[in-house]
Design a protein around this nucleic acid. Structure first.
Length: 226
DNA sequence: TACCAGGAGAAAA
DNA sequence: TTTTCTCATGGT
């Protein structure tokens, strides 16, 4: 993918949807909690769980670790997978405390911090990159299912590419601009939710005609809002 | 009723 | 090494 193609998609999405103001949170720590809770879950339900957690205790690692696992899991019920996510949140809070909190983790250089976060049970590539970009403000491009689908259909990525390969593609094509990366990922998610289920071609799609010569052999879109 | 949502880890092949 | 299964509530 070339720089101008990546920027063309971004500018069209921004023009269509406007700034998304991500990540909605009161602190970097809340961003990180949200990153774990939103795994395969809609943000609306994450907000419910975070609100319930705030009503129960302070949004701090020590306070969350002071809760027994059953109470934590019950509080996280709205996000689904609540037993799994209660354990993941605990593992993260333990790691966060041991590492010296936000300042301790923030003292690491980006690749080191990424590996550090990936070593925590329950933090995979996407969750780690959410934290790096939106909590630590590092120029890391977040890749998710929407990114694969959208850019695969545009013919700008092969859908078989792995996470790291796709991440490098964006980070090579674009300047390491934190604000751009934040907005770009948010816009991809925003657009991904805008799925037209009724028509094979949506004339209103802001990305129509971005890539007139798609890769050969790629799958045709089921619904071409993207 | 069936499918999807801002994934990750464990188990099986 | 790659693929499949499991975790689970809430909205459409």
């Amino acid at each position: 993918m070339k720089r101008d193609q990546a920027l063309e998609v971004f500018s069209r999405l921004l023009a269509a949807y406007g700034p998304q103001h991500w990540w909605p949170a009161d602190s970097p720590f809340e961003v990180m909690l949200g990153a774990v809770l939103t795994q395969n879950t809609s943000w609306r339900n994450v907000e419910r769980a975070l609100d319930a957690l705030k009503r129960l205790t302070r949004l701090e690692a020590a306070a969350i670790l002071a809760l027994d696992l059953a109470t934590l899991a019950a509080t996280l019920r709205p996000v689904g997978y609540f037993n799994v996510k209660a354990q993941r949140l605990r593992a993260f809070c333990t790691h966060y405390q041991t590492a010296g909190g936000f300042a301790g983790l923030g003292s690491l250089e980006t690749e080191g911090l990424r590996l550090n976060l990936l070593s925590v049970h329950g933090i995979g590539p996407e969750t780690a990159d959410d934290m790096l970009l939106y909590a630590f403000e590092r120029p890391v491009f977040v890749v998710d299912a929407y990114t694969r689908r959208l850019f695969g259909r545009l013919g700008l990525l092969a859908e078989s590419q792995g996470y790291e390969q796709i991440r490098r593609t964006f980070e090579t094509a674009l300047d390491p601009d934190v604000a751009l990366f934040k907005e770009y990922h948010a816009l991809i998610v925003r657009h991904g939710k805008q799925v037209c289920r009724t028509r094979p071609q949506c004339p209103a799609c802001p990305l129509r005609g971005v890539c007139p010569t798609p890769l050969s052999g790629r799958r045709e879109p089921r619904a071409a809002t993207d």
